[in-house]
């Protein structure tokens, strides 16, 4: 069974109003990335599922299907706290209707988080706009956790080999 690298604090953080992005790479192509529309934690923290848009992520999904390797960053704009998870067993799964409330809650929390920054709400809504049938879920087991909060400890490994 995979080691559980995510502490409760990490789980709380990545499921809050953070900005989420997911990257992957496959041989012969540049690395690529997309924004996440939310995430869920599975198997008691041993797995993470990230929701992304198929229409925005054709190259990313190809990379994930080929290499199964992902880098997943979560950052809270108000504090700059940033966490990066990595995985080597990522799978692309169908989005489950049961995850709708998770996506909605994430977008609402994120909106609240960025509102004080003064960005027009219409712009934020455009960045996060999607059709429900465009969502897919990328599930992976975090095998390394890094702090990426800017500062002297940026890049510090918080767990994993």
């Amino acid at each position: 069974m995979a080691e559980n690298l995510l502490k409760n604090d990490h789980v709380d953080f990545i499921t809050s109003g953070v900005s989420i992005s997911l990257a992957s790479w496959r041989p012969g192509h540049p690395p690529t990335m997309s924004r996440g529309m939310g995430c869920k934690v599975l198997d008691d923290g041993r797995q993470v599922g990230v929701f992304i848009l198929r229409s925005q992520s054709a190259a990313l999904l190809d990379c994930i299907r080929t290499s199964r390797r992902v880098a997943n960053v979560f950052s809270l704009p108000s504090t700059n706290r940033t966490l990066q998870l990595k995985g080597a067993d990522a799978e692309v799964q169908t989005f489950e209707a049961a995850d709708w409330p998770v996506v909605e809650a994430h977008l609402s929390n994120f909106m609240q988080e960025v509102r004080p920054l003064g960005l027009p709400e219409s712009v934020v809504r455009a960045v996060l706009a999607f059709n429900a049938d465009d969502l897919v879920t990328v599930v992976y087991s975090p095998n390394a956790v890094f702090s990426q909060t800017p500062g002297p400890n940026a890049g510090e490994r918080l767990g994993g080999a």
Binding site: P31, T32, S75
Partner: peptide
């Protein structure tokens, strides 16, 4: 205003993502 992202990978093919 909206931070950019940068994606790279190491020589072993492990992707990395940063703000």
């Amino acid at each position: 205003i909206i931070p950019g992202h940068i994606a790279t990978c190491d020589p072993e093919g492990v992707p990395n993502l940063a703000y």
